[in-house]
């Protein structure tokens, strides 16, 4: 799609917008996040100290537990959930099920140019139904 945006695979439907929060490390929704604040507390994450609340969270992968769904849903209950998730590879079924419950759109495997062009903090509009990611 070039300058204006990129195409990805829509996994969980819905539209969202927010500032990108880009990580190079895998994140575990169980253990790496403080539910009440939405802050990353996992020491293995390069997002340590950042808040995922309202951000379009861009990760290489999700790690870990079958309990991931509950923590993603708990972020929603506490209003600290990310606006959307963009992942390089398909997440565990548990993460996907949590995203459905929390109504957080999930997009996977954006076309290659995305990873080079995207900067943390850029405003993004994402559509989990069509798989479209756009700037602005």
């Amino acid at each position: 799609m070039g300058e204006a945006g990129w195409q990805a695979r829509g996994v969980v439907k819905g539209q969202a917008s927010g500032a990108a929060l880009v990580s190079q490390t895998a994140l575990s929704f169980l253990g790496d996040l403080d539910i009440r604040s939405g802050r990353v507390v996992g020491r293995s994450s390069d997002l340590l100290g950042e808040s995922v609340a309202g951000r379009v969270l861009v990760l290489p992968a999700s790690r870990g537990s079958a309990g991931a769904w509950r923590f993603l849903y708990q972020l929603k209950v506490h209003g600290t959930h990310p606006a959307a998730l963009i992942l390089r590879e398909m997440p565990d079924p548990s993460v996907t099920q949590g995203a459905f419950l929390a109504e957080v759109p999930v997009l996977v495997a954006p076309e290659p140019g995305f990873w080079e062009a995207l900067r943390s903090g850029e405003a993004l509009q994402v559509d989990g139904t069509t798989g479209r990611i756009a700037r602005g």
Partner: peptide
């Protein structure tokens, strides 16, 4: 199965078929 221990016992000992599920 929502419990990862049940998933692994069912797949590996009983020969039943289960993913590591969540709420679904």
């Amino acid at each position: 199965s929502i419990e990862s221990g049940v998933t692994v016992f069912a797949n590996s000992v009983l020969g039943a078929r289960s993913n590591r599920d969540g709420f679904f």
